[in-house]
Amino acid sequence: MIGKVIGEIFMIIGGIFMFLASLGLLRMPDVYNRMQTSTKAVTLGAMSSILGVGIIHPAWLPKCLLIIIFILFTNPVSAHAIGRAAYRTGVKLWPGSKCDKYGEYLKEEENA
């Protein structure tokens, strides 16, 4: 009984994180900000939700941990690929952004 309450609290926290991630996806000004806010927050929300399911059913916990590990390994890979592809295809940064390290690196590489 206590496990069910704790697991549902974890699931609600994960749901709030996923909702906020989608809100960030809708409201942020350019591709890089959207990717930053949404991919990281949705990874955390998914991990918290699946851990909540694992706490509700303790027999399912190993498989839930396996799913969490796979999400934790695969999500940053896809986020990195999207960010790199967006920069390489020439999507402009938001005018208010402060620094552009990857652009500086590419410029140094050209000069060297």
């Binding site: 991630a21 989608s22 591709v31 959207r34 990717m35 999500n75 999207i82 592809a85 295809t89």
Partner: peptide
């Protein structure tokens, strides 16, 4: 742009 849609698809898969 196209990367926006790719980010949305990524979120939908998770």
């Amino acid at each position: 742009t196209a990367p926006d849609r790719v980010v949305a698809t990524d979120i939908l898969t998770t």
